[in-house]
């Protein structure tokens, strides 16, 4: 497995969307690859930061509405 593939699986894992086989392959890869295991650690850190921050976002359709109203006033 290449590092690019490992990174994609690692990202999927952040959203709990990696399959069992993928996870297994990733763990094996991380065992041998220093760069990827560093990336993996940082990536999980980002996930936990995002969780901790209780982020909010406006739904896309509200934004589209807002944009239209602003454009009407420019």
């Amino acid at each position: 497995m290449t590092c690019e593939e490992a990174a994609i699986i690692c990202n999927k894992e952040q959203y709990k969307e990696a399959t069992f086989t993928e996870k297994f392959k990733l763990i094996v890869h991380l065992f041998f690859c220093k760069t990827c295991s560093k990336f993996s650690k940082k990536n999980s850190e980002l996930t936990s930061l995002c969780k901790k921050a209780h982020l909010h976002a406006l739904p896309e359709k509200d934004k589209v509405k807002m944009k239209k109203e602003i454009e009407g006033k420019i």
């Binding site: 909010h56 406006l58 934004k63």
Partner: peptide, 10 residues
């Protein structure tokens, strides 16, 4: 102003 919503709304 045309970029406000995308950049700053959230």
């Amino acid at each position: 102003p045309e970029t406000w919503v995308d950049k700053y709304a959230d």
